[in-house]
Simulated assay, not measured.
Amino acid sequence: MTLGKELTKLRHRHEARQRLEDLDKERKLVHVIHYSCESFYDIKDGRTPRVTSIAVRNYASGQTKSFSIHKSAEQKNVPSEEISDRYDELEREMLGEFFEYLKYLKGHRFIHWNMRDINYGFPAIEHRFKILGGEPIVVEDDRKFDLARELVALYSVKYAPHGKFGRMHSLMDMNSIGAKDALTGKEEADAFDNEEYVKLHQSTLRKADVIANLLDRTLDGSLKTKATWRERHGIHPVALLEFLTEHWIWAIIVAVGVIVSIISGIWSLV
């Protein structure tokens, strides 16, 4: 294990904790966002997955704004059995409402879980709206806060097993957070194939609530993880050695302190 690696971990942990504290100070301007979509593992033609529902939950109030295929269908008086035939039209309607809502959240910050790329993330939602003929509002990267990655910085990759259903579900089990309505990835894929859009929407809402719950516990220090005490507190002998190596003044102070203690001990025996 190299010296630089441990001190880098400590720095990343400190930076993650600072970002968390900054979020805690401006809760009214912070939103938890989550969405459900068609399974990207089952797509054979390379297109991005269709979006089925999006939830945006204000962190301070808990009030949630949601957008979904079945709601768009209701608004346009489209029978449920016709949704799949008119999916592009309804998805565009839904995404149009979502991006219109984002206009009112300028300067706000968004907490999410692994929404990072074109497969699953902000870029995927933006791309879907573009190919459906819309002009998305792009959320700047510095306004996005990936809780899944920050937990790795805080507790190491061992903080929760990926398991069969992913780390979120593992954390839910460890922290006794009810899984009602929160579908697994496989269940969401099955729900999409079976055109159970309401079920997908309920799962999206529940997971937004779960992410907020996990953030609450992270902030107050009550989150249960698989991380060891050393991993939770970022203390490692190698990191201490590197700190003293790079910050030689502290090394001198520590050395002087040790020498003084030894001399004091000797004089006490005289």
Rank of each mutant, 00 (worst) to 15 (best):
L20E: 04
N213P: 00
N194D: 13
A16Y: 05
W267Q: 07
L240F: 05
D22M: 12
F145C: 03
K207V: 11
L29K: 15
I266K: 08
L151W: 00
A55P: 06
K76V: 01
M115N: 12
K158W: 00
E6L: 08
D190E: 15
I111G: 00
P49Q: 12
V157S: 04
K180N: 13
L23M: 10
D193N: 14
E26A: 10
I125A: 05
L269G: 05
P79Q: 04
G163F: 03
D88I: 05
L102K: 02
G257T: 09
F67L: 08
M168K: 01
R17Q: 12
D24K: 13
S53T: 08
T8W: 00
T8N: 07
T48G: 14
D193E: 15
H34T: 04
L205R: 12
V152L: 00
P136M: 07
K5C: 04
Q18A: 09
L214E: 03
A55Q: 03
E91A: 03
Y41T: 14
H112Q: 09
S68M: 03
S72N: 01
R143G: 01
T225E: 02
A60K: 14
K44Q: 14
N114M: 06
E187A: 13
R50L: 04
P49M: 09
H162P: 00
I252R: 11
I111E: 00
T225F: 00
K71Y: 02
R230V: 03
R19W: 01
T8C: 00
E26G: 10
S170A: 15
G234D: 07
V157W: 01
H112G: 06
E140L: 09
F243D: 06
K164C: 02
A208D: 02
S72D: 03
H34L: 01
T2W: 05
A179G: 13
L154H: 02
N194V: 00
A212F: 10
L90Q: 10
Q18N: 06
Y87E: 14
F145V: 05
